[in-house]
Write a protein that binds this DNA or RNA. Structure first.
Lengths: 212, 212
DNA sequence: TAGATTGTTAATCGATTAACAATC
DNA sequence: TAGATTGTTAATCGATTAACAATC
């Protein structure tokens, strides 16, 4: 089996949108879907969808479109959303709290199985049915449960120090929800979630829209 | 005064990162900062920072760098983060709950002043000090308080219908946290927050990293 | 066959980087 | 003056779109 080429990032970001639309269509008895139907409210050209799908090795049928169910499976399997991965969440403040209650992650293969917090008064409790442990238990539980993934939701000024603990405990992939860029060793990957970057775009759009 | 050119989106997304680094540096008595210092852990070239700043009309001083405080002010004012805007949040589920408790928005000029929920049992209560109102009060309060901005955090299958209500009530800018693409009239702008797109990128990175 | 849709190649567009000039 | 840093122009790179060929 030849290694699937890593697609361009913009294409990867579009796949969840395709999936969302495809799954809505999948409730009817539709068998094939054309890119013209898929493009829906999206503001780019339908040919780009064909390019994206071709990158996944998918074939359409002229005059019909793409087989709907096969398309859904192919995208989910490309993203790895058909297999579960367990993760820890670190920092149970407002954002961490929300992410613990967010079913959309587990629907997409990312199961948050426990939270950790340095505030001992929170430990021992449960949030959305998931236990909250003391940070002192992190290393032990990471090893015992074989966890490789962590969602980092602590205040930014603690982020680097906590990230160091995660690395020490054996975590290999960090989804960083803080504004702090992390310094990590080889072999540990990081994905920065930048909500403030997104707010910046929204702010500029609004400034120009309201023009004040 | 000539209208500031709308910069490219990637540049806008970088500004909050610059701000974060600049504000950390601002606690020392540093007066000037060079792009070499700013580039820190970022994985692009320092010349891009100069391009971004030039786009804002900022001038640096050869051999010294950019005046730190002026830089912070210029970026904040470009983003409109030095002026407050009031907003409503719609849907007080897990995510909505978190965003209500998230101080980072109000630090950047976006003040969420109230929440709305169609679940009447939640109405009348407070979350993070902000009142939760019934959806039936939306139109009246939007007009009375002169609110133009809404954060949409309802389940995706209600999103379009609630968006229609928002438009009806007079909302002009929607930050859409649902996966549903919205169909909106002219004069109402929408900014899609796509957490699942971000998860997709993280998932693909992990797949390639763990290579399984 | 005609027509609708996919598939591919070339052109365009925009963002980033490289090379170098300008300035204090 | 020499050297460090900003500033600018040209080259490169990558993603999107346009044009058209292929296919059922």
């Amino acid at each position: 089996m030849d290694r699937l080429k890593i697609l361009n990032l913009p294409a990867i970001r579009r796949f969840p949108t395709y999936l969302h639309i495809l799954k809505r269509l999948d409730t009817s008895d539709m068998e094939y879907v054309s890119t013209a139907e898929l493009i829906d409210r999206l503001d780019f050209e339908a040919v780009l969808i064909r390019k994206d799908l071709a990158g996944l090795g998918l074939k359409g049928v002229p005059r019909r479109g793409y087989p709907l169910k096969a398309l859904i499976n192919a995208i989910e399997s490309y993203l790895g959303w058909n297999k579960d991965d367990e993760a820890f969440l670190i920092g149970s403040g407002a954002l961490g709290h929300a992410l613990l209650g967010y079913e959309q992650f587990s629907d997409r293969g990312l199961k948050i199985v426990a939270a950790f917090d340095s505030d001992e008064s929170k430990c021992g409790s449960e949030i959305s049915g998931k236990p909250v442990f003391s940070m002192t238990k992190l290393e032990n539980l990471t090893a015992r449960m074989g966890i490789r993934i962590a969602l980092l939701c602590v205040p930014w000024h603690e982020a680097q120090q906590v990230a160091d603990q995660l690395v020490e405990a054996g975590i290999k992939a960090i989804w960083n929800f803080t504004a702090q860029e992390l310094d990590l060793p080889e072999g540990v990957i990081c994905h920065n979630e930048n909500l403030m970057s997104s707010l910046a775009v929204f702010s500029v759009k609004m400034k120009s829209h309201f023009n004040d």
